[in-house]
Amino acid sequence: MSETISRPFTFVKDGIFYFSRRVPNELKSHYTSPRIAFSLRTRSARIAEARARKAADQLDEYWYHLRCQDGKLPGKHMLREQGLSSAEATAQAPVVSSASVLLSEAVGIYLQQKGKGRPVTFHRAAERSCGYVIDACGDKHLDAYTKADANAFRDALIARGLSGSSMTRVFGTVRAVTNFAASEQGLDFTNPFAGVYYDRTAGVSDRTPVPADALAVVQAQCRSLDDDMRWLVALVSDTGMRLAEAAGMTRDDIVRNNDGSLHARVRPHPWRRLKTKGSERDVPLEGEARWAAERILAQQTESRFAFPRYNKTDATNANAASAALNKWMKEYAPAGCTMHSFRHSMRERLRAVECPSDIVD
Score class of each variant (00 low, 15 high):
Arg21Ala: 13
Asn257Glu: 15
Gly15Phe: 06
Asp139His: 02
Ser163Met: 02
Leu40Pro: 08
Gly260Val: 04
Gly75Ile: 01
Leu111Met: 14
Phe193Ser: 05
Asn326Tyr: 08
Gly131Val: 13
Gln69Gly: 11
Trp231Met: 07
Gln185Glu: 06
Glu81Tyr: 13
Arg295Met: 11
Ser2Ala: 14
Val255Cys: 00
Thr90Ala: 15
Ala48Tyr: 02
Met249Ser: 14
Pro270Lys: 10
Ile296Phe: 00
Thr190Val: 14
Pro94Trp: 07
Phe9Asp: 15
Leu102Ala: 07
Tyr197Cys: 03
Glu288Pro: 00
Asp282Cys: 03
Tyr310Pro: 02
Val96Asn: 04
Thr4Ser: 10
Thr32Ile: 11
Ser86Pro: 01
Thr4Pro: 02
Ala321Ser: 07
Gly161Asp: 02
Arg22Phe: 01
Gln185Lys: 10
Ser100Phe: 04
Phe171Gly: 13
Val120Arg: 15
Ser85Asp: 09
Ala216Asp: 10
Phe38Gly: 01
Phe153Tyr: 14
Ser166Ala: 14
Asp227Arg: 11
Ala306Leu: 01
Thr313Asn: 05
Ser165Arg: 11
Val96Tyr: 00
Ile359Gln: 13
Asp206Glu: 15
Asp57Thr: 12
Ala306Tyr: 02
Gly240Ile: 09
Thr178Ser: 11
Lys312Cys: 00
Gly287Gln: 03
His263Arg: 12
Gly186Cys: 03
Asp199Ile: 14
Leu215Asp: 08
Ser39Val: 07
His30Ser: 10
Ser279Asn: 09
Arg343Pro: 04
His123Thr: 14
Ser104Glu: 07
Ile359Tyr: 07
Arg351His: 13
His263Gln: 09
Ala321Tyr: 09
Ser224His: 11
Arg242His: 05
Thr239Leu: 05
Arg343Glu: 02
Ala52Asp: 09
Phe19Gly: 03
Arg35Thr: 12
Ala289Gly: 06
